[in-house]
Amino acid sequence: MKFIKFLLGLTTLTASTIGFAQNSSEKEWQQVYDAREAIYEKNIGKLPNDIMKAPNLFGIWPGGGFYVIPADKIKKGLWVYSTFGFTNSDMPSTVTATEIEVEHDNQGRVISSSSKLEKKSETIPLSGKAGHGYEVLMIAKENAEWPLWFMQWTGNIVLLNDVDLLARVEKNNGLTVEAIPVGNDENDTINVLITKAQKPLPTDIKLPNGNMQLLVATVITDEEMEWSIENGRDALLKKLMDANIGQISDRNRPSVLK
C-alpha cells in the first residue's frame, strides 16, 4: 500500500512543463496531446491550466498526469477526474521505476523524490491503439480529494504493475474492484465498476497515433459489488443506467438493488 504516501504529495505543474519521452518525437507527441485536449474540451469541459503529477511516476510517465475538470459539457455541477497521458505517443513506457523514495513535509507536500529506472524486459506492442489505448475517468458530484486517491491507484496499477484495464473490461464486460483506499483511514475505501464510457461521452475516438477508449470508474455499494459477481458487470451497468445514475459516482447513494 506504499502508493498512499505518494498521493498525498501530488505535484501541480503547468501543462506546458510536462515534457515527453525520447522514444517519441516532439511534433508527434504534441499532435496527440492537442487532439486529445480538443476531444475532452468538446465532450467534458475546459482543461485547467495545471496538471497533477505523482512523484513516483515522474520517470516512467514524463508526459502524463491527472486533471480535475469542471464537467460543464456533461452537466453543470459535475467534476471529472481523469488520467491524461496513457494514450501519449511515448506510451507504453519501456522502463519501470524501482527503489522509489518520496520525502514529505508535515503538511504532506513533496520535499524530494527519487527512483531508479530499469528497462523492462518486454513491452507488449498494442497494435492500432494510441499508447495504452485508453484513459480512465471518474465523474463525481463534488470537487474533493478522495477521487484523486483512485486516480493515483489507477496510475500505479497501469504503469508500475502493467495491468491492461481495457483488456480486462472487454474480456469480462466490465471490471469490479473492491476496497480501493481513498483516504488516510484504512477503512476509507470504495468499490468501483469500470466500464467503457456510455453516451453522451464519446465511445470511439481516433487520435493521430491510434484508437482511444474512455473507461469510466463508478463507485458502487457492497451489495451491488456482490450482485455483479453473480449477474454480470454489464447487468449492473444497465441497472445504473436505468436508475438514471449512469456512470456518476456518489458515495452516499442507496443501492439500486433496493
Rank of each mutant, 00 (worst) to 15 (best):
G59S: 10
L78M: 14
F86V: 01
I39M: 05
P55Q: 15
S25H: 00
Y81Q: 07
V32R: 00
S93A: 01
D34E: 11
E26Q: 07
D72F: 03
A38F: 11
T96W: 08
V32L: 05
V68E: 04
F20A: 14
P70D: 12
A38E: 10
I74M: 07
S89T: 05
N23M: 11
P70V: 11
G19S: 09
V68S: 05
L57D: 08
G77I: 09
I74H: 10
P92F: 02
D34A: 15
F84A: 08
F20Y: 12
S82Y: 14
P55T: 15
L78D: 13
D50V: 08
A35Q: 08
S93G: 00
Q31C: 13
I51T: 06
S82V: 13
N56Q: 07
P70K: 12
S25W: 03
V32P: 01
I74T: 04
F86W: 06
K73V: 13
P70G: 05
G64N: 07
E41N: 11
N43H: 13
L78K: 10
N88S: 13
G85R: 02
Q22P: 05
I74L: 10
T87D: 09
M91Q: 05
G77Y: 10
G65E: 01
G45Y: 12
T94K: 15
K46A: 14
A21Y: 12
V80E: 08
M91T: 02
K42W: 11
K76Q: 15
E28Y: 00
P92H: 03
